[in-house]
Design a protein around this nucleic acid. Structure first.
Lengths: 151, 151
DNA sequence: CTCTCTCTGTTGACTAGGAAACAAAACGGA
DNA sequence: TCCGTTTTGTTTCCTAGTCAACAGAGAGAG
């Protein structure tokens, strides 16, 4: 005796995830060619704009735990893209910043981000693109979503 | 010397992920109260509509590897929600199906799915809701995204 | 000053999933 | 018929996170 249950595909959340997953996955594949993960890209992107950033701030900004940022930073340092620097005034604190190598790498990766965006959304009619952007931004505002880079 | 790099928030993919993550996360929290993960829910949802389903089919349908489905099935069997049954005609094959307990559980979880959908999108103007649905579905079609339940 | 509380980053145990090697069973062409 | 190929589910190892316990450093009330 089966109760009537609405089809999953009647949910907007379903379609949203289909598209969002595809976009993220497609970007991840592009980054893979440069041996960078999406999370690593996000860190580099923040550090590019805000050169010396403490890990704790990065964690908030990206919606990750501090533990995750520690490991992420370890990886990026291992690749020579990021440097740790101890804070002068606070014995606990550190800051992270891009190395010269890392700094030069970011624009190269940004090209991939733009290309991905273009591939996924360019064929869309321009007015749809604008509507989608408006609706998504309003939804973020309405739901009170704290801007987060990852997850 | 910093090259000019477009802000991340100019990308539709960014906003899409914000919303999609929020919706999924919000749903996961609701399921948590019932001690079920989103992946487990997705399995149960498929089995509810297609009672005896082989793991391999489930893997395709959900965009997971067969290995992942094995573990997922193990967990669900451990919770007494799913049963494995060996195929009569093919010595390799099995099918998975909901137990009575699992079957009774699904409608209860479906309520949470509906509630989540409502909470996330109900406050949205109805014409926006329709536009969003149309645009997302067209995007799925345009990008040739294979319908997948998870990821 | 000192004792406690808070904040920093790190670590270890755990989770969910992917990739690939695997064993057993079925298939299929010579 | 029989041997190589394919298919099915499992297993092992790896990655990338979480969570919670932790140690060391600062801050503030007394």
């Amino acid at each position: 005796m089966l109760a009537e249950i609405p089809d999953l595909t009647t949910h907007l959340g379903y379609w949203l995830r289909q598209v969002s997953n595809h976009v993220s996955h497609s970007f991840a594949r592009k980054l893979e060619a440069k041996d960078v993960t999406v999370a690593e890209w996000a860190v580099m992107r923040v550090l590019y704009d805000h050169p010396p950033t403490p890990p704790s701030r990065l964690a908030e900004r990206m919606g990750l735990t501090r533990g995750a940022v520690t490991k992420l930073a370890d990886r990026l340092i291992g690749k020579g893209l990021v440097a740790r620097r101890a804070s002068a005034d606070d014995g606990r604190a550190q800051t992270l910043e891009l190395t010269a190598k890392g700094n030069g790498f970011v624009p190269e990766l940004a090209v991939l981000a733009d290309r991905n965006e273009a591939e996924c959304f360019a064929p869309m009619p321009d007015e749809d693109r604008k509507a989608l952007e408006r609706i998504l931004k309003e939804t973020v505002a309405r739901l009170g979503i704290a801007a987060v880079l990852m997850e």
